[in-house]
Design a protein around this nucleic acid. Structure first.
Lengths: 296, 296
DNA sequence: AGATCCGATAAATCGTGCTTATGACTGGGG
DNA sequence: CCCCAGTCATAAGCACGATTTATCGGATCT
């Protein structure tokens, strides 16, 4: 059995749905069906129970094979990763995820880490807007750069990278455009958008659900990534209280940024899984602490 | 990287020779070269050092990858084997190797084992004539049925299956054909053949190197399997002192079997690796002891 | 019954695993 | 010194299997 087929098997074992498994693998449902059928022929027994069209389930045989094959798959991935790193003179890798507009301002930290630990590879990658903590939990990334506080029992909050004042993004022809500043209370006058399915405390840390006087700050749209967000701003459907450093990322004539001094600053820091903390993560936290938090 | 490619890599890592690795994999040398080149491109570093055409060697990178990938490969094989067994209601497998002409007479033992332990799968397979002990050591089979004594420090000798008188196989038109019996001394008058590279004590246990009067019993040919051996007998080039049970396996009009009472009987027994002895092997040995040795 | 969802199957297409043929380089022997 | 044998690399072509598209059959829900 080839590795690709094992991946198909393991994905189906997770999804328990031929169509979804196929989608995750960027394959057609037909292919998944064929591969599983072939595996069952080779093994000599059914791996999945799909008799009553109700719900696909693993048979005991399939469950055993899945338990056996999953470590094989991860070991292979790890081995290849290790070899690729070793070929570049690195012994380990740290994957840091962050929102794209953070990237330019955090160079110091990453360069600091790289020069202190040339034997380790630091990968900076773009984190998704939706369910980013899941990426930490799945092991897709090791450290996540986000606003604080983050209050999840299985995650550790590390040092703060920077404190950033808030600016409200509005369309160039918006009624607020050109203002020199704006109050928090005024945020309740306009529609907002946030990614779906965020933990409440986390969403609240970014933008309160209520104004100081108790009016609701309404979420009228949901946006799954930063581009969607800024697009909604440009079209005038929403306004959005970004941290100020986005002004160095987007400088489009169609958007204007109005300071919200009353909101104070928002802290951005490191977050990682408590139970996979390792020497690399600690070294990154140490580096950030040594350099100290930036103030924009 | 697919499993097939991993196999190619691991085989080359063992053989350290593109041509031989290809032969073992039933591939062409070109294919091995291509696969390794591709792997090195994907990894981003050389896996083998073949600069000076002297001798292919693993680079440190290749050595590391090899150490990482070998367990992946064996775990995969084991997992699939386990699944195949589980599909047939078995939990473990015992592979017994023997010379093909032993097969018909040993049914009792195998059936005894199977009825005592229906949850275990007993596979009877044909063992090669050349370097059979290596197959035990490589883990290709678990137990080997052979004549005794076997005197290797890493192998355990188990119970005897049967004691068998000797018969000399000669061509139908051979000068000895039709004799009612023959002396050991007379064996020195004819050419013999044995597999190459046998341990001396083992070869001697089957056919002494000298007659009682001290004449050499000459090996004039080497045969790598039983068919080659009987072919040499038929063509009259050699004679061969088989154990008598082969008369139930070959009964060709071109061969005659002449008893050699003076040689006595030769014992056949179980042999296995001391350090991989397990519950299945012990159960087989117990079964054989309980049934007792056969006398032909 | 009709609509819908889901997995199996058949047929068609496309990619790649593998071969054959050849080249390039090295070391040894006359 | 040149040729030859041995060995790995490269190029081109083929054939099979990986994958897709299209369709079917069975179950469930309204």
């Amino acid at each position: 059995m080839e590795m690709r087929e094992i991946e198909i098997f393991l994905t189906l074992a997770e999804e328990l749905h031929f169509g979804r498994a196929a989608a995750r693998l960027h394959l057609t449902q037909a292919r998944v069906s064929q591969v599983i059928a072939r595996q069952e022929r080779q093994i000599g027994g059914l791996l999945f129970d799909r008799s009553n069209r109700r719900q696909v389930r693993l048979t005991p045989l399939g469950r055993q094979l899945c338990a056996d094959l999953r470590p094989v798959h991860t070991h292979l991935r790890d081995s290849l990763e290790r070899a690729r790193l070793a070929a570049r003179g690195k012994t380990a890798r740290l994957r840091v995820g962050m929102m794209p507009f953070n990237v330019p301002d955090l160079h110091h930290y990453w360069e600091g880490f790289r020069s202190r630990h040339p034997e380790w590879e630091l990968q900076i990658r773009r984190a998704p807007y939706v369910e980013p903590f899941e990426r930490l939990r799945d092991g897709d990334m090791d450290v996540f750069v986000t606003w604080l506080p983050v209050d999840e029992p299985d995650l550790t909050t590390g040092p703060v990278l920077f404190h950033d004042p808030r600016v409200l993004a509005v369309a160039a022809d918006h009624e607020l455009a050109g203002r020199s500043q704006i109050s928090v209370e005024a945020l309740g006058d306009f529609g907002h958008a946030m990614p779906p399915a965020m933990p409440d405390f986390w969403e609240d840390g970014y933008l309160s659900f209520y104004t100081p006087r108790g009016r609701e700050i309404e979420r009228i749209e949901s946006a799954t990534n930063a581009d969607e967000l800024i697009h909604l701003v440009i079209t005038g459907e929403i306004v959005h209280p970004f941290p100020s450093h986005v002004t160095r990322y987007w400088s489009m004539s169609h958007v204007q940024f109005v300071p919200i001094p009353e909101m104070g600053t928002i802290p951005y820091g490191l977050v990682w899984r408590r139970d996979t903390e390792n020497e690399l993560i600690r070294a990154l936290a140490r580096t950030v602490r040594d350099i100290g938090a930036l103030h924009f």
